[in-house]
């Protein structure tokens, strides 16, 4: 089934005080094709998390609507439709492991499916399946989630969302706070879900190395607006935009720019990963 995500002039606010509202999204129009792997970047408060939340119906548009595979999210969408949306669009919040609560891993993963009326036996099967999918062994099903390591906990939390069998997965800073191994495991998982299951994946990040390594396309946000949506190479080629948005560069490109300054001329093409950089350096005769 094709699950395109369409934003039609979406404006959304969130409450910041008893009397105050802040504009979170400002006239966002966007069409995301099925199967894309997108990184969302922008400064703190640019509206990145809000963009994810509107896709999942946690934040309802004040104006405009979001259409996801025939379902519409607008300011008075009923709870039933929202519940259906949430099954199709799985959302992983920041530090999702802090939301684990059941006495064992199996019960925690089953929580979602059971809420959607999946029979217990079926839910348990799903728990096994998703645990395997996130790369953890079935032995931990009976363990308390609190006894696991940081990276494992996060993968269990993601398994809890995957057990809903969503077609779109949106994640708020999935790698933050993990050590390099833990981070790598999470992104390996996302890449696998995208390539093998054709899942559309959107993730928020501040780390341009994650953009360079794992995303195909990038959404850049500022003050609740989408400023850029396109290929990652096009974004990093656009030095003006990078500067205007105060965006960082991936390590490889940062190194490349320093090197170009030293040699006084540009390398033949821009490099986002160390592999690309190594090849270009060799090709151009610098190593």
């Amino acid at each position: 089934m094709v699950m395109e995500i369409q934003f039609h002039n979406v404006t959304a606010d969130y409450k910041t005080g008893p009397l105050k509202k802040t504009r979170a999204l400002n006239d966002v129009t966007l069409s995301i094709p099925s199967g894309d792997m997108i990184a969302i970047v922008g400064q703190t408060g640019a509206g990145k998390s809000s963009l994810l939340k509107t896709m999942n119906g946690l934040l309802l548009p004040a104006e405009g609507f979001v259409a996801i595979g025939g379902m519409k999210i607008h300011h008075q969408t009923d709870k039933l439709t929202l519940k259906r949306v949430r099954k199709k669009v799985g959302m992983v919040l920041q530090f999702p492991e802090s939301q684990l609560f059941a006495e064992n891993v199996e019960k925690d993963i089953c929580f979602g499916p059971l809420n959607y009326g999946v029979p217990l036996a079926e839910a348990r099967k799903l728990a096994r399946k998703t645990l395997q999918l996130v790369g953890l062994s079935a032995d931990i099903l009976s363990k308390s989630p609190f006894s696991l390591s940081g990276g494992e906990k996060r993968r269990v939390a993601i398994a809890g969302i995957l057990a809903l069998e969503p077609e779109i997965l949106v994640l708020d800073e999935p790698g933050v706070g993990l050590d390099p191994e833990g981070k790598e495991e999470i992104f390996q998982l996302l890449t696998k879900l995208n390539r093998e299951k054709g899942m559309t994946i959107l993730f928020v990040t501040h780390d341009m190395n994650e953009v360079a390594r794992y995303a195909e396309n990038v959404i850049v946000m500022q003050n609740g607006r989408v400023i850029f949506y396109g290929k990652k190479h096009d974004l990093f080629l656009n030095q003006e935009l990078i500067q205007m948005m105060h965006l960082d560069l991936p390590d490889a490109l940062r190194f490349q720019r320093l090197f170009e300054k030293k040699i006084g001329k540009p390398l033949p093409k821009i490099c986002l990963t160390e592999e690309e950089l190594a090849d270009v350096l060799i090709e151009a005769g610098y190593a």
Binding site: P180, E181, E184, D251, A252, F255, E274, E275, L277, A278, D279, L281, I282, A287
Partner: peptide
């Protein structure tokens, strides 16, 4: 590999690709 800083990773990669660093 995962723990090495960027310059070290690049250096290793270039050596891996047969360069002499």
């Amino acid at each position: 590999e995962l723990l090495a800083p960027f310059s070290e990773r690049l250096r290793r990669l270039l050596i891996q690709k047969g360069r002499r660093l």
